[in-house]
Design a protein around this nucleic acid. Sequence first.
DNA 1: CGAGAGTCCTGAAGGC
DNA 2: TGCCTTCAGGACTCTC
Length: 282
Amino acid sequence: MPELPEVETTRLGLLPKVQGGRISTVTVRDRRLRWPIPKNLATQLSGTTVFNIVRRGKYLLWDCRVANLPNARRGYLLSHMGMSGSLRLINRADAGQPPQKHDHLDIGFDNGVTVRYTDPRRFGAMLWIAGAEPAHPLLDRLGPEPLSDDFGGAYLHGAANGRSLSIKEFIMTSQVVVGVGNIYASEALFHACIHPKRLAGKVSRARFDRLAVAIKTTLLKAIHAGGSSLRDYVAANGELGYFQVNAFVYDREGLPCRACNGLIRAIRQGQRSTYFCPQCQR
DNA sequence: CGAGAGTCCTGAAGGC
DNA sequence: TGCCTTCAGGACTCTC
């Protein structure tokens, strides 16, 4: 279940192995993802060199060019891992093994590296953006990156003006800020001591300052935890990240709060589970 | 425009 | 043991 830290960890794990690499083979086994994998994806990718992979929210943009010339063929692979997707490196030996049920896409490089996309629930995406600019409707209305300097209490306070949805749903809206999923939303609100049902438009500037810091800190901690297990990620299964991070509230209904010993509660907000400490969060 | 519900999908977990 | 139902998740898309 990749959230922003898992996507960033994936990017950091892939980049050293594929940057500068030339794509030689693209194997599509099942086009059915969130949107179908375009029929021309293999043709477009084949023969290109991956110059870079950048992250925007939970999307990865693979900068693919045939040559470093102004008018050379160029485009971007736009990938998203949905909730059950993983991109992982497999070696030559494993690439020869029969693919598993949900191994939908392989990208093979000249240097022997293969990147395999696996996604049991098929909520992910693999799309092609032609041209020199990574422009796509899916990216048009995204809010700021939570780890950028653009993102802080002042921004959140302004964006929340007049909004009547809950603070938890507010920070999970990608037009407000990208990359804050269900788990980290609960965790960040706990660290900022804000009750998840409080209305976004009624949260004070001072509390938004604390919330912005909590979001940044929570995400950075998870990225660092993921980074520490990059070796495992490269080696095998691609599962890492917040599983190794001790949650303070998420999935801890009925367990004692790590701060006050009170009991963690679970509620539903917008068809999503929310966990919080009624004593610590007001 | 905003808010809220519906939707895609599979596998795990729980009930009987 | 083996159905059946429910739930989980990201985030787009539809309805009001």
